[in-house]
């Protein structure tokens, strides 16, 4: 699967952009949190596409945001 870049993303319809990002993010998140991957991906997809692209390129950023999302998720479910 070729890497997703900003140009490729911008050429996709707006609705499809989130889908493309989600399809890339989900397996990465699933590796760390198999049970919460769908929810976490859903939360992260509400962020800007620019930030999501950055997270795909930077595992540190992704992990930081995933940790944040889990904290929010747990607070919400409590």
């Amino acid at each position: 699967q070729e890497p997703l870049d900003a140009t490729m993303l911008a050429s996709a319809p707006l609705m499809d952009q989130k889908q493309l990002l989600g399809e890339r993010l989900y397996p990465l998140i699933q590796a760390y949190h198999p049970n919460l991957a769908g929810k976490i991906t859903g939360m992260l997809l509400e962020m800007d596409n620019t930030e999501l692209l950055h997270m795909l390129e930077s595992p540190e950023s992704l992990h930081a945001k995933v940790d944040e999302a889990i904290a929010v998720l747990k607070a919400h479910q409590a």
Binding site: M15, K18, Q19, Y26, P27, G38, G42, E46
Partner: peptide
């Protein structure tokens, strides 16, 4: 009250409908 359906869940291969305003 909190929306119990939040956050919207992403499923691979299923069209994403999480965002209301796009």
């Amino acid at each position: 009250g909190n929306n119990i359906n939040w956050p919207p869940e992403f499923c691979p291969g299923v069209p994403w409908k999480g965002l209301q305003n796009i």
